[in-house]
Write a protein that binds this DNA or RNA. Structure first.
Lengths: 128, 128
DNA sequence: TTGGCTGCAAAAGTTTTGCATAGCG
DNA sequence: CGCTATGCAAAACTTTTGCAGCCAA
């Protein structure tokens, strides 16, 4: 993705990074990885842009693992597997949350369901 | 629940509180609510015991809402609804994650699934 | 010149930890 | 006595924010 302009070079780089990785990184990880490529990048900028993307719905928060928030640039609904051992987050594309559950949820909660997260917790192969 | 002894009075009080509320409190909330009853309770003790309970599997973490971790003393598997507006967490007992998904998850992740969390996000009736 | 993006560093907020004390066994 | 639980306060960490500078339009 070619930057729109110099003005958005960092913003684009951050979103681009989030969209092209499957590691579900934290802000710190995004920063660390882009830092080599963009030496004058600051952590504050990463946080600011991540907050923006989240608000715009361009990325999704997966919640915190070991006290650090993790993000996913793939906003296509999918299921996750979090390894309790190494903290690695895996995408599971072979299943989806049945539509009935969504309906049942909004009915029982007596509210409006926007989206849902299904996350399995366990041990990945190398951590078993 | 009668305390086992004075030695565990606070620990028991914290677990007891978590088990008898449906508000899915944060550590701070547990502290604030028990403080009136146990004036010489410290926040550190709440955090220490919560960490212990979590490790022992006596309570479950629901992840962070607005930067604060929330806990559930009800470890019976159930679904949650988190209101994006007020941060309130609701238990949904009228549904469960189909067993097939569990199997599919461990198969696709090529690991061992311990448990899973299904959480709906949206707006509760008063926040719509 | 104006407005938005950013670096930098300070601040805020949450959670953890060290140390000393008290109480159980 | 030894061990565990705890209060208190400092520390550690993550995340947010204020301010000044810079660049694009």
């Amino acid at each position: 993705m070619e930057p729109r302009s110099k003005h958005f070079r960092k913003r684009d780089a951050i979103l681009n990074y989030l969209r092209h990785t499957t590691e579900h990184p934290s802000a710190e990880t995004v920063y660390a990885n882009l830092k080599t490529e963009i030496p004058d990048l600051s952590l504050g900028t990463v946080y600011r842009n991540i907050a923006l993307f989240k608000q715009q719905g361009l990325i999704v928060s997966l919640g915190s693992v070991d006290g650090v928030e993790r993000y996913d640039g793939n906003i296509d609904p999918h299921v996750h597997f979090v390894c309790t051992g190494c903290g690695h987050i895996l995408d599971l594309h072979g299943m989806h949350v049945p539509e009935e559950l969504n309906n049942a949820a909004s009915a029982e909660a007596d509210g409006v369901v926007d989206h849902c997260h299904l996350t399995f917790h366990g041990r990945c192969r190398t951590c078993v």
